[in-house]
Every structure is written in C-alpha cells, then in structure tokens.
Design a protein around this nucleic acid. Structure first.
Lengths: 230, 230
DNA sequence: TGAATAGTGTCTTTCAGACAATATGCC
DNA sequence: GGCATATTGTCTGAAAGACACTATTCA
C-alpha cells in the first residue's frame, strides 16, 4: 500500500496557525409543561443583540467538560448536573471574527435546582421554550436542533431523564418529562408498566401528598450514571 | 436570576492562547472474517515507534470533515467513503507537546476499494484486526474503544453497514458484516427475515456464481444516505 | 452424487399498544 | 359526596428468537 508520510510528523505543532476553540452549552430544563433552553443575549458584534447559546473559550488548562461546567456556572450558578458532549461544529466561516471550532454540550437541570435561582433579578440570560426559540447567532439554530434530536432519541433508550428530575419523584412527573420532550401524550398504564419493568426505579416507600387527592408513591433512580436499555 | 457577564464578550478572540486542533480517523474495513482498523507507525517523539490513528492538524480553511477526508486520502488514496464524526477528545495532557484537542472520525471502507491498493508495497501504515491492536500512542486506545462501541451500536439501528460492502452483495455477505462486528453468530433465517422487512434492500435480479454451489441473488441498498430504524 | 452455499416457514414467547374501572385523600 | 390524582390488568397484534429441511450449481 502506498502511504504518504504524515504531514503532522514533518512540522512542530507550533508552526501551525491555530483555530479558536470554544464550548457552547445547551442547558435544558422542564418547567411545567414545557421544555426550556437557556439563551444569553449577545452584547457585541457579531450578532449583537441576538440570542445565543451560553459558551466561551476553552482555557489551556481545563478539559472540555470543565470548560462547559465553568461556563454553565458563570451563567446559572448551578454545577451539579448531567453533562454530555453533543457534537463539534467547526465549519470555516461559522464565526465572522476568526476560525472558531466549538464543542457543544448538553446539560440537564432539575426544575428544583432552577427554583433556587428564581426570584433573583433577571439578567441577560433567559429561558425559552424550545417551541419558541428566537433567531439565534452563528449556527446556533442548527446546534439546538441537533441537541433536541439527541435528547429525544436518548430519552427512548436511556435513563437520561434523571437529569431533569429531583432525586425523588412521582411516576406522573416522570411521565410528564417524557411527554414534554417527545411532544405527545403517553398512556399511563403502558408507561408505568414499561418504565417499572426496566428495573431502574425503586420505590422509596414514602408518599407525597400534594393536594386534595390520593397521595403518590415516590420513586428514585437506583443508578446515578447513565444506563442504556433496549 | 444572577448572571455573570460572558467572558467571551470582554476579550477579542486573539488574546486567548489557542490549543491545537487535529482530526484523527478510525478507518474500518472488513477482510475475510475480521474487522480491521488502519494504524500508522509514528516516526518521531512523542510515542516514537508506537502505532497511532492516522490524523493531523486541521487547516484554517477546511472543515473538520474535509480535514478527515484529506488525512484519509493521504494515508490510503481512498476518498469516497462513509464518514461520521465520533467524539472530541481534549483533556489537557493527552499530548505531551502542547494542548491538542482532537476530533475523531469514523470512516468505513469497502473491502473492494481496499483491494485496489493491495499489492503495492507496504508503507508505515498497516491494517490491524481490532481484536489484536497493539499498544497505541496518546489516548488512541480509548478512542478506538469508543469508536468500536459506536460502530457496534449503530449497526443495530441503522444501515451503516453499506459503508463496508460494495454496491451489490449477497445477503450472506451482509450477514457476515454483522457477525464480524457484533462478534457473534446470527441465525440465517431470522437475519434475512429481519433485514428484508426493513425495506432498505432491493434485489438486483442478478445472481452471482462463485463456486460449486447454488448462485446467490445480489442485493443493493436502496438509499445511499444513512437511515435509522427501530 | 457429493460438496458447498442459497433459500425458505412455523411455533413460541415477548413486548408494545389499545383500552376503563377502582382507590385514596382532601375539601 | 365531589373532586383530583393514583393505581391496576387484559386483550390483541407485531416482532424476536429457536429451530431443519429443500434447492441449485459445479466438480
């Protein structure tokens, strides 16, 4: 087989002009009946005043995950979350300033972590229902669509939903997560049958009373890591 | 909600020290009863004389995909292939020279494209059965394992196997692809029932005679793009 | 006719999906 | 009792998996 010598062997890394590398974070949460994503308003050129994904440059001494978590904390103060690398977008010209390669991450936040922040004054960041996303800067529209597809498909064959619920929850809350993300109604009996048969949930033995009706059993996931099924 | 101002707004991109960005390519093919991966032998520090994934620096004016294809062509001369982004690895310290973030790609090559190259003299690149991979440079061992997992799972819910077969093929060849990658035997009747029911294959009407036995119908995929099922 | 691969059907079990009535607690 | 949510089982159809014999070609 004819083999060309590797270019990368012939030059030291320092001689190459280097692109910038950023992380962008898709922060999802569920509020009520809606899946929402966190966006920040850009203050400067390019795309001034456009909404964009929170993100920023990767520092030389942090991993990509650490960069994503750092950006997340800068925007929300939250840090204990589900984090998953989504995809890397790097077409030349996606940023008019310079060559920027961005590694996109998905983060899932529980609704109650969110409530800890509620009541503070609004900043330049805002939650948008994914069904009502404004025009976005750069190629962020494409990134969000890619992330939504990933989230929807992963919901069907993993326990990723634990990232959107507090530790203990009612089965009806879990079902709501599925319904909101998949954007369709599910049959209560079939949902419970299926989800319980996976063996990922355990009953806490406690019941939650939340109004003038029969109290619900609380469940929790028996694994904290992501698990695939099917 | 309290929001920290985005660091990325406060500085121009030029002030940041930039990591190097490379692509590494996992080139898979099937030869006989084995799944093989292309590796190149490093000629210089670091990891001199270790085998590594083919790869190199991303040029400023090419997309990540173009970089992967360019590296592939430099190593094999092949360019019409299935290409899929795998994952981005960027831990500090994964390359002792400098901060290097690498975007890994999976490439699938058909066995007959490979034969076009056979007979030429061997270079510093070599095909290794994935079951007998030597010690690899950098974190390439981890990357290869990640890629193998992706390949195996994607085989089960997509038509990705078209990347490993020539345009027309016998069902027994397709079954062999599945058996080699999944590393287990499949029942012939169930396999054919299942794969034909997906509606992704069409019979060419031609038969292939290849020895002292009944000739086999040739099939082809009716879509050239990747399709997901299940 | 022997060797080698191609091609085919049934049964069983499992799982998804449609579907409605009863239970419990608060007011 | 009225309201609101929780909890539970059956039937049906589809798909997965176990399993063995006949067909065709060439030497």
């Amino acid at each position: 087989m004819t083999i060309a010598r590797r270019d990368s062997e012939k030059y030291s890394a320092e001689k190459y002009e280097r692109p910038s590398v950023t992380v962008d974070v898709l922060v999802f949460t569920i509020v009520g009946d809606e899946l929402k994503i966190l966006l920040v308003k850009r203050a400067a050129w390019p795309f001034e005043n456009y909404w964009a994904l929170p993100g920023g440059f990767v520092q030389m001494n942090e991993s990509l995950e650490q960069a994503a978590i750092r950006e997340l904390r800068e925007e929300t103060g939250v840090s204990d979350v589900y984090l998953e690398q989504l995809y890397t977008f790097g077409d030349p010209g996606r940023d008019p300033r310079t060559r920027v390669i961005t590694v996109a991450y998905i983060v899932l936040i529980t609704a109650d972590a969110l409530e800890l922040k509620a009541g503070s004054d609004a900043g330049e960041a805002q939650w948008f229902p994914v069904k009502k996303i404004p025009a976005l800067a750069f190629d962020h529209q494409k990134i969000v669509e890619y992330g939504l597809n990933r989230l929807r498909s992963k919901l069907e064959y993993s326990n990723i939903s634990y990232g959107l619920l507090s530790t203990e929850f009612r089965l009806s809350e879990l079902q709501k997560v599925y319904e909101v993300i998949l954007d369709r109604q599910l049959d209560k009996r079939n949902f419970r049958k299926k989800i319980l048969s996976l063996g990922l949930l355990e009953a806490t033995g406690e019941k939650e009373i939340s109004g003038a009706h029969r109290p619900a059993m609380l469940y929790r996931f028996n694994k904290k890591e992501i698990v695939f099924f099917d």
